[in-house]
Design a binder for these strands. Sequence first.
DNA 1: CCCTGTACGGTACTGCGCGTACCCTAAGGG
DNA 2: CCCTTAGGGTACGCGCAGTACCGTACAGGG
Lengths: 193, 193
Amino acid sequence: MGTRRRGEELERAILQAAAEELARSGYAGMTMDRVAARAGTNKNAIYRRWPHRAALGVAAYRHLSDVAMPNPDTGTLRGDALEMLRQANETWSSPHGAVLRSLLAAAADDPALLDLMRERSGADTMDRAWLAMLARAVARGEAPPTAVHPRVAAAPMMLLRAEYAMRGIPSVPDEVLIEIVDEVFLPLVRGRV
Amino acid sequence: MGTRRRGEELERAILQAAAEELARSGYAGMTMDRVAARAGTNKNAIYRRWPHRAALGVAAYRHLSDVAMPNPDTGTLRGDALEMLRQANETWSSPHGAVLRSLLAAAADDPALLDLMRERSGADTMDRAWLAMLARAVARGEAPPTAVHPRVAAAPMMLLRAEYAMRGIPSVPDEVLIEIVDEVFLPLVRGRV
DNA sequence: CCCTGTACGGTACTGCGCGTACCCTAAGGG
DNA sequence: CCCTTAGGGTACGCGCAGTACCGTACAGGG
């Protein structure tokens, strides 16, 4: 048979297959044999590139997602915060987000996965976006300067994440996002004198 | 050999063995074979009582834990909140908490486990304790009446939980608890006018 | 244009863990 | 005292991670 794929081409095929398996069965259901079969190759070619399943999982996730970091500027702190949460909620509810959640869940029992996820998680970038948002609010006189604080910036996303962890999974209703902003985030900003 | 255990006695022995395995290796590392061996019996006796590993895991967890709900009354809102967080942190850092976290992690991939855990999580009781705490602060004139709100009450524990999810595992340092109280919880209470 | 090293493909195998089947044997109630 | 019931011993079947071996196509240098 003429064409035997090599190098880049094969690697893309494997990542594609792994991503499809992730989307279909989650990380727990992604088996090396099925990935190999779907890619039309065998486990050898996979293990020659990634040392274990966790590495492949993270690589496949990276392959299908280049998440654009949102940076809304609606003119009000409330509008910006709500927009950030809505975009995050949308991302995490999507099939793509299901993959991410599945990886995060698995990471709790798999230190290798946890390390791999931490660097790629984009949490830092997210925090910076929130801090920038707060700085703009301060510049507008909408918030006291003391509101620009890492814990304040990280709180809303953490609450949203905890909401996901508590409910089964699917999607957090918009009312919850509004409550997080109106009952927690804005009072918190206001209270930091 | 004269004595062959039956019924209640055997069941307690199995649960005890399962709890010890949970404490030693977490849920992911609790194997049916080892539980059977430690209990001095075989998998037959286990599967006759619980349909699958998840059921045994939850049953074993219940067997070794009747968590006392803390209800501190230090005289100040700050003292109460810090005490609640410290006790939660201690519980979750303990072997017992490790078991709980391990079960929760596994629950993300195992719907049966998730259902079993939800009823036993004690989240409601926890929220009530925080609301009572806030009500006392209001009575002392330490907080505005509007601060008594479910989202406010739930926020600190959610932040602590998110902190656990982010870091690898072991224990959240006390400084973080203090920051959650001083930089988030108290300003939040103050800002709810 | 051949020759050789390297990567791919095929396959088989170890090790482990869940869940099941089968058969023998001790308990203990009628 | 016997007969049903439940425990004990053991051996499976199955699926999956990761490894080993070997033959073979491909690329690139001579």
